[in-house]
Simulated scan of single mutants.
Amino acid sequence: MIARKPWKSAALISLFLASFGVKADLVVLQYHHISESTPPSTSTSSSLFNAQLDMVTELGLEVVDLHKATKDIFSDKPSTDQRIAITFDDAYESVYSTAAGILQERDLPYTIFVDTAAIGKHGYMTWAQLRELATRDGVSIANHTAGHGHLARKPDETESDWKKRITHSLDTAQAELKRRLGTDLPVFAYPYGEFDEALEAAVAERGWYGFGQQSGAIGPLTGTTRLPRFPMANAYGQLNGLKDKLNSKAFPIDTNKLPDGIVRANPPTLTLPLVDDIKPTRLTCFASGMGRIDFNVSGDSIAIKAPKPFNSRRFRYNCTHPAKEGGFYWLSQQWLDLSKPED
């Protein structure tokens, strides 16, 4: 079973990081469609996709298998090389018709997170196509639920109803992937990147790694049920900012200690511990739709809060800080306002 790491003091975290010497992390790229004719918010053009992969090659970064690389990060002797993993959510048809050929020609591994209830519907792959891809070297197929529902517990939902709903969604999909494709990988992607503490616990109980949609790199202190990925759609994956993302480092704090993101006050406050590698004068934070925002330093912590409430269901605080070995520490906290309508 994948257990969540215990909370650590700032001093212990500093010692922990120092033991790894030069820090190199795993950066996971998240895609949906590879197409010029699908919804812009979740699409990456084939030309941009190729250019992104070209930059990965030019930077000398190794593209690795998601599950194996994630296990390695949390091992006693993680790799000291900065590495990249490629993922696709939902199993859209364009991944089969466009992305798969590009990646096969480049001999790059990737993972497809599958909504099993959507397979065979318009715009999605068929089971035959998934079965074919699953036989190719470097291709992994993993769980993205049956039905792509919003899995965090709804405000008016009983605990028993919630448990029944998420148990069906998670376990039906895992069983169908095993039955149809023979795959039983312990990696899972949250629909919409939404999760709460109870859902994280359900993922951990199954021994799975849980991947969100908040940006950032994965390091030894990253929570195993709240693993970040960089969205790579046209709006977020442009080349002018891609190098910093590919070379980013996990923020040097235990992210299990951060909130699960459920909004209880709007705007919410994110409190980060002050550790040796973080200097407030070099920290920069942004809020969705608001640009750069201020923060307050008090004692051994930093309090980050947007200047006004948000109107959306999901939004983020993103913070970066120069890393001592080059590049940037990168942290994204996704917030989820359950009072807002579902997509």
Rank of each mutant, 00 (worst) to 15 (best):
L170K: 02
P268E: 13
Q214L: 04
P231Q: 10
A146P: 02
F16V: 06
R4M: 11
E205Q: 15
P267H: 09
G326P: 12
V22T: 14
G327A: 10
Q104W: 12
L283V: 05
T281M: 09
I293Y: 06
S288R: 09
A250L: 04
W127E: 11
K164D: 13
L53S: 01
Y110G: 01
A250Y: 06
T42G: 06
K163F: 10
I253V: 15
A69K: 00
I84H: 00
L48V: 00
P191K: 10
A235M: 11
I302H: 01
R4T: 08
D343Y: 14
P228R: 04
N311W: 01
S9Q: 13
S19G: 12
V64T: 08
E325Q: 15
E194P: 05
A303C: 02
I302Y: 01
L170I: 15
G291L: 03
W127K: 07
L48E: 00
R313K: 14
S46N: 00
L283Y: 05
T172P: 03
H144S: 11
L29G: 10
G216V: 06
V28Q: 04
K5E: 13
P109N: 10
L283P: 04
K243L: 11
P273A: 05
S97Y: 12
F211N: 00
L199S: 07
L17N: 10
V27R: 02
R131V: 02
I262A: 12
P191G: 09
S140V: 07
S37M: 01
R282E: 15
L270M: 11
I13H: 02
P109W: 09
R226D: 09
Q30E: 10
S215T: 08
A100C: 11
Y124Q: 02
S19K: 11
A287Q: 07
F328D: 03
T167W: 04
I253L: 14
G149A: 13
A306D: 03
H168G: 09
I2S: 01
M125R: 03
P191N: 11
N234W: 00
E93V: 14
K8T: 13
G291E: 06
A118P: 03
Q213W: 00
V203N: 03
K324I: 06
D156H: 15
I112M: 13
L108N: 02
F211W: 06
P309D: 07
L177A: 06
P6G: 14
D244A: 15
H32G: 04
L130I: 03
K257I: 09
F251V: 12
S14R: 14
R106T: 14
W7H: 13
S97R: 13
L59D: 10
E105N: 14
F295N: 08
M1S: 14
S288H: 07
I34N: 00
P186F: 07
R292D: 04
D196P: 01
M125V: 13
Y236N: 08
E325I: 09
P231F: 08
R292K: 15
F230L: 06
D54Y: 05
F188I: 08
Q104M: 12
R313H: 07
P6F: 05
Q104T: 14
C319Q: 07
S215F: 00
V28C: 08
H33V: 00
D171H: 14
R4I: 11
V28S: 03
A202Q: 15
L336E: 05
S332H: 01
S312L: 11
K324F: 04
W335F: 15
P228C: 09
P273M: 07
Y31L: 01
R4F: 07
I13Q: 12
